[in-house]
Amino acid sequence: MKGAPVRVLGILTVRNEGAFLLEWLAHHRAVGFTDFLVFSNDCDDGTDAMLDRLGDLGWLTHICNDGPHAEGPQWAALKAADRHPLMRTADWAMVFDIDEFVNVRVGDGTLGALMAACPGAGGFAMTWRMFGNAGVVAMDDRPVLDSFVRCAPEVLHWPWRAQMVKTLFRNDGAFRKLGVHRPRSLDPDRIDGVVWVDGAGRPLPAGFVRNRVFTDPGSAPYGLVQLNHYALGSMQGYLVKADRGRANREASAFDMGYWVERNFDAAEDRGILRMAGRSAPLLAGLRADPVLGPLHDAALRWRQARFAALMQEEPWRALFGRLMLAPASRVLSADDARLIWQHGARRQGREQTVS
């Protein structure tokens, strides 16, 4: 007799993301997530109404998480998720964002194939692979996965932030708290039994299991799975994202520094599109819903109107102009990256001497 099906929980926080929500859900249901716990906060575009409808349809569980939040809306959501009944029934769990798409590169592209490739793993540290803007200016209704296929190379030495991870982990009690990039509060008596691997299936050291949030630059950790990170989107959409701020910090600015550390186009990767055969029918069904379809369209119009409003202010016009002029991000060599690290180490030493 077969055992109970494996339950995999995706935990998501959103604000004004209605234009992207249905694609994200359809893809990750096709990949193998069985449950979604979604927190919304302070939405103006109807995302919260979409989530209510999706809850009625049995797609997810929606929690309204409106502010103010002393630590930021994402941290407030994670504390609530720690206590939610879905965490007690999940075999595996992962916290990630709506601009991050799990891309399993082994087998049939599902989480089941990934787990079968590393049957002893209790955690998969999925490293970001940055997908750049690709010169896309306007917001439209084309799917994210079709629109952005240029990305960083598999071997990337800088910036280290481009090597950050989100973690799919076995929910067996070894970790007592959720975190943005990885579960936290490891039970010290369980450390020897926790086996994590990187996206290439290579075992990670105990130090990583305790507290690391990025894999080693230059390590090419994508053989089995990568986390496609569409952090920029279109240029118009980037301004709307910058206006919103980050989920884990109420008002953290998105600027040219954020853009140039993520706008890579040195490689092309269309591998995630092989899941369209599974996800497209799911997406079509959601779009055909008499409530969700109009709400999706309204969310896109809201974003377009918000961009138009931002362009009435000179600081936003200036940022938009810089985006239009900026080239794609340069891929640094290992020697260039080493030089940056060395300068940083020397500066840190000087600061410690002064203090």
Rank of each mutant, 00 (worst) to 15 (best):
W24S: 02
L25M: 11
L25Q: 09
L25Y: 03
L25C: 08
A26S: 12
A26I: 09
H27W: 09
H27E: 13
R29Q: 15
R29T: 06
A30T: 12
A30W: 09
V31L: 06
V31I: 15
V31N: 08
G32F: 09
D35Q: 06
V38M: 07
F39Y: 14
N41M: 09
D42V: 00
D42E: 11
C43V: 01
D44Y: 07
G46K: 02
T47M: 00
T47E: 01
A49Y: 05
A49I: 02
A49Q: 15
M50R: 03
R53K: 07
R53L: 04
L54D: 10
L54N: 14
G55R: 08
G55H: 02
W59H: 15
L60I: 01
T61V: 04
H62T: 02
H62Q: 04
N65W: 01
P68I: 00
P68Q: 08
P68D: 01
H69Y: 07
H69A: 03
A70S: 12
E71W: 05
E71K: 10
E71H: 14
P73R: 00
P73Y: 00
Q74W: 06
Q74V: 02
A76N: 10
A77H: 01
K79E: 12
A80D: 06
A80G: 06
A81Q: 09
A81S: 08
D82V: 14
R83P: 04
H84D: 14
P85T: 05
L86C: 05
L86D: 13
M87P: 11
R88E: 13
T89V: 10
A90C: 04
A90N: 09
A90H: 00
A90M: 10
D91Q: 13
A93V: 01
M94N: 07
M94E: 07
V95R: 03
F96E: 02
F96A: 14
I98G: 00
D99A: 08
E100I: 05
V102Q: 01
N103E: 10
N103Y: 11
V104N: 03
R105I: 06
V106E: 11
G107R: 10
L111C: 06
A113P: 07
A113I: 10
A113H: 09
L114M: 04
M115H: 11
M115R: 15
A116L: 08
A116K: 11
A117V: 13
C118D: 05
C118V: 08
P119Q: 06
G120H: 07
G120I: 04
F124S: 04
M126S: 04
M126K: 02
M126Q: 10
T127I: 06
T127A: 11
W128H: 13
W128N: 07
R129T: 12
M130L: 12
M130V: 05
F131E: 03
F131L: 08
G132H: 00
N133Y: 05
N133M: 09
A134P: 06
A134K: 04
A134D: 12
G135K: 02
G135W: 06
G135N: 01
V137E: 15
V137K: 09
A138H: 11
A138D: 14
A138R: 12
A138Y: 07
M139G: 04
M139K: 08
D141W: 00
R142E: 15
R142D: 15
P143A: 03
V144P: 05
F148I: 02
C151V: 02
